[in-house]
């Protein structure tokens, strides 16, 4: 999977991670994938709900040493 953009939201509190992600997504072409990094455990449900509502695709998510990574493919 090719990652076109990495968005670092580590240490940020809501709503900033999703604000940043929205902006970043505007710069992507359809089908491109962005990686979002977050340290907020509570953000997982938010990302899932937001991706669903906006019809993008959450390809996968993983956790590594307290950092949550979300891979979102633009619709």
């Amino acid at each position: 999977m090719e990652i076109t953009k990495v968005v670092d939201t580590k240490g940020m509190a809501c709503p900033m991670p999703i604000v940043k992600v929205k902006k970043a997504l505007d710069t992507l072409e359809s089908g491109q994938v962005m990686e979002v990094q977050s340290t907020d455990k509570g953000s997982l449900n938010d990302f899932q709900a937001w991706v669903k509502q906006t019809n993008h695709e959450l390809v996968k998510h993983e956790e590594e040493q307290g950092v949550y990574k979300f891979f979102v493919r633009k619709k």
Binding site: C14, P15, I18, V19, K22, D46, A49, W50, Q53
Partner: peptide, 10 residues
């Protein structure tokens, strides 16, 4: 109570 996620209100 009304629920509307913040990411729909940004």
């Amino acid at each position: 109570i009304l629920n509307k996620p913040y990411f729909e209100l940004l």
